[in-house]
Write a protein that binds this DNA or RNA. Structure first.
Lengths: 335, 335
DNA sequence: GCACCGTTTGCACACGCTTGCAAAGCGACC
DNA sequence: GGTCGCTTTGCAAGCGTGTGCAAACGGTGC
């Protein structure tokens, strides 16, 4: 639609007095070009403002350099931190990120993957939601790499990166008991994600081993407001908990704010709180929240390394388990 | 490199017993295909798992459907909120977002724009940094649309979306004075962005009209930690301010935390605080921060509308000024 | 001069798609 | 039946690039 079109390799070739192939080879690392023609081509390209057309290149090479990031709740602290790390490391690996937001409308992960196929993305990274088996099969059949982060799926083919949610739940339970807490609670959302449920189950199991039954509540979406509601529900019980593990830092922040400002409860003296994710706000002095840090950078590097690998070792089951690091702060007594 | 290639329109055509053009037309809205062939093509496509190759389509149409979002500090609350809105609205407009992260290494905005050109992006939206004039000219010459958000540049050609930073600064100054404050301060970062400086100048000017000289400090990058440092600097002065306007909510949160937890100052009784952006944390009850809401959704819709417009009215100067809405909360006395 | 070898270069085809153009099909009307 | 008009269809020419292949080149060693 533009009056002036982009400048093509042909024009550069004419100006440099060489063939079009020479231009192409100049911009293809490892191709055979003499130093002299290379220089002349580069000069002409610079003068004309030439840039290789990656659409055409991708068409030829059958490799676009595009990696699709499929994600909902982009504006959430944890998600955006992961997004940051992924884009950065992808760029370092010479790839470029295509961002597909799957907020609103369910089943849109499938739609997103279709979009990834249309743009012939070399790979897709799924940070949220779970795709239908048929569509992932379609992706894999077309040679598209797939990475599932914290999705805990059992489909063979994609790389699956997960955390030790269950064990983390256990660790925090013993930490609570060691801090002298006796009435343990778990605050969860209704999302029912495998990672969230893993934390819950691990926490309950470890408490059971210590002879403690855990109060569990689930409400709403995994955000600040839900944390407040959960606090209202749990702190008005006759047997009020003196320690609560929130499935997420956002929940924990909401819970803590409600406990302090609506119930006048002091943290950690009367109530110990722990969260998960280690979002930036967890370190803010208003919260000073003990939590588990997701190894965001390591997650990203595993993902990027896998999807840049030339060899597609089909058939094997690729799955990575990383451990979340317990960040000890002031929301639990006796650090 | 994959053993099996993607399925092409040719294969669909053969299976459906029609020509390749028929397949192409079936997937081109508004093209002339009979209902019968259309049905047969769709059936064959579904069976084979065919998806139009947007790289090839973009090559032909000279219109990729890709929009580049160039942004640093992706994990920041305000930026990620804007990102969320942009991706969502772009998708609704039938575009797809390519995310380029310009953290680390300066001048990378230019590199990002080059990347946008390589992928023949229809447009680029710049959320941070400022590109060199030569490179924006190159983009415009190639028919690539450009949107600058809060960059306050004077280059003709791109759409420039800005806020009434200066006026907002003025409004908050009078609000402080009306609340009985007498010693006004402005906490800024050293970034020196036009929007940040606009708020500062507007605040100072309005205070001057009321006969008040403003204490100004600038430090570091526009984040929580910088806010803490600024508090340390300002609250140890002999003439301690009783109202501070922070250029950003993140600064304000840090400032408030330091004021309360390190200096034992009560907000808003002894110190009124205001911020800018209305990030989610501003509404959290630990902060309850009076601030200006950026009209994120409107910013995004202006950007998307402009870059989907068919007509490229060259020569005209396109610039939009939006007003930030004052969100009145508890960090200023007497709301 | 000639055979040999390694490097550089150009030709031409392929990638998967869109689209102008003309031919074909189909009714309807005189 | 012939003419006109409209819709549908296939052909083929591109879009900008990568790359195999063979020819051209340039330098050795005899």
């Amino acid at each position: 639609m533009s009056s002036k079109l982009f400048v093509s390799a042909q024009e550069v070739a004419e100006r440099a007095g060489v063939s079009r192939s020479a231009v192409s080879r100049t911009f293809t690392p490892g191709a055979s070009v003499s130093a002299d023609t290379r220089r002349r081509v580069l000069e002409a390209a610079e003068a004309l403002g030439y840039h290789v057309n990656h659409l055409a290149r991708g068409l030829m090479r059958n490799e676009s350099g595009i990696v699709c990031l499929i994600v909902s709740d982009v504006a959430t602290p944890y998600r955006s931190a992961l997004l940051r790390e992924l884009t950065l490391q992808l760029q370092n690996a010479g790839k470029v990120a295509m961002l597909i937001n799957t907020d609103r409308s369910d089943g849109s992960v499938d739609r997103a993957l279709r979009q990834a196929i249309r743009y012939r993305a070399d790979a897709s990274v799924i940070l949220s939601g779970l795709p239908d088996k048929s569509i992932t099969q379609l992706c894999l059949r077309n040679g598209q790499r797939l990475v599932l982060i914290n999705r805990d799926d059992d489909q063979p083919g994609p790389l699956k990166i997960n955390l030790d949610d269950y064990e983390s739940g256990g660790r925090i339970a013993t930490a609570f008991v060691r801090a002298g807490c006796r009435t343990l609670a778990f605050a969860n959302s209704e999302a029912g994600t495998p990672s969230l449920m893993g934390r819950e189950r691990g926490f309950i199991a470890a408490a059971a081993r210590l002879g403690i039954e855990v109060i569990v509540e689930r409400y709403g979406w995994t955000g600040y407001e839900a944390g407040k509601v959960l606090a209202q529900r749990m702190l008005t019980r006759t047997e009020r908990p003196d320690a609560v593990f929130c499935a997420t830092d956002l929940l924990a922040c909401g819970f803590m704010d409600a406990a302090r400002h609506q119930f006048g409860i002091s943290v950690p003296d009367q109530l110990c709180i722990a969260g998960f994710d280690d979002i930036e706000q967890a370190s803010w002095s208003s919260y000073d929240l003990t939590t588990f840090a997701q190894p965001v950078s390591m997650i990203a590097s595993h993902a990027v390394e896998w999807l840049s690998k030339a060899e597609n070792a089909d058939g094997e089951d690729h799955s990575v388990r990383l451990t979340a690091e317990l960040i000890w702060r002031g929301s639990i007594r006796g650090g």
